[in-house]
Simulated scan of single mutants.
Amino acid sequence: MADTAIFDVDGTLVDTNYQHALAWYQAFRRHDITLPVWRLHRAIGMGGDQLVAHVAGDDVEERLGEDLRTAWEEEFDGMIDSVAAFEGARELLADVKHRGFRLVLASSGKKKHVEHFLDLIGGTDVADAWTTSEDAEASKPAPDLVQVALAKVEGTDAVMIGDSTWDAIAAGKADIPTIAVRTGGFSVEELTEAGAVAVVESLPDLRDGLDDGPLNRPTR
């Protein structure tokens, strides 16, 4: 039985995926590269250290990778005040913690962004630990961040809760099952093909079904 719940933050607990996609779109446009926003959206959830090559190729990464990531950060900074927590995020975290799970909020985001999001959901009051981009060398879909999250609370078995295919792939590489929430805009088929063991529409739906899935530990 799992003793740790690892929650992705961006796109799962706070509604950021489309801001991220638009920030990347504007970052590429600064360098006269125009990519379809839908294609960028499909890469959201992947860390910025891997996204540029994934969507634009190794040559663009080699020439412009660091400049693009700096531009993305500047663009996203200008949008961050439009980000809101998803309905039921704080209540879900409290319920999972009350059931006896060690609770980790796992993000590969910039420290300043993560801190802002934690404030939106009251994360520092309920979570046992959290991560930022400073905690792992390689971001999703590498498993590093998931493994760091588990180690931070000295957990032995975990359940991942995420919104993107990259969450499920990264957790799968660490032999951790994923419950996927469709808040990131990915389809049921995409999420299950990436390895999610269950897919729900929203955080309130996940909370309502806690007794029927991997987070079904009895309330203590």
Rank of each mutant, 00 (worst) to 15 (best):
L51S: 08
S107T: 14
D81P: 04
L93Y: 00
I44H: 09
A106I: 12
V60T: 07
V104L: 05
V55S: 01
K112T: 11
M79C: 06
V60G: 03
R99G: 00
A106T: 10
S82V: 09
F76Q: 08
K110F: 13
A5H: 01
E66P: 09
R69G: 10
F76V: 08
L51E: 05
G122R: 06
V55L: 07
E74Y: 02
D15T: 15
A94T: 06
I80Y: 02
T16N: 06
W72Q: 15
D67H: 03
L103C: 08
T34S: 09
T34H: 13
A94M: 09
V104T: 01
D77M: 05
L120Y: 11
G78F: 01
K112C: 11
P36M: 14
G65H: 03
L40F: 03
K112V: 14
H113I: 12
L93K: 06
R69F: 06
T70F: 04
V60A: 08
E75R: 10
H41V: 07
E66Q: 12
D81F: 03
L120K: 12
A85V: 09
R39M: 10
V60C: 02
V83I: 14
D95E: 15
S82Q: 14
F86N: 09
R42W: 07
W24N: 06
P36D: 09
V52C: 04
I44G: 08
Y18L: 13
D58W: 01
K97T: 01
R39H: 13
A27N: 05
V83Q: 05
D15C: 12
L68G: 02
L35N: 07
L118F: 02
L68Q: 12
A53V: 04
H20V: 03
W38R: 13
D58N: 12
W24Q: 01
G65T: 03
V104Y: 00
H113N: 13
V55R: 05
G11F: 09
L120R: 12
A21C: 09
D58F: 02
A85K: 14
G48M: 00
Y25V: 04
F86C: 08
K97C: 02
G45V: 05
T16Q: 07
K110R: 15
G47N: 06
I33T: 03
E74C: 03
A27Q: 07
E87M: 13
S108T: 14
L64G: 03
Q26D: 15
L92T: 03
H113M: 11
D59H: 02
I6W: 02
D10V: 11
E62Y: 00
H20S: 08
D119T: 10
E87F: 05
D8M: 11
F101K: 01
G11Y: 11
R69P: 07
F86S: 09
L120H: 06
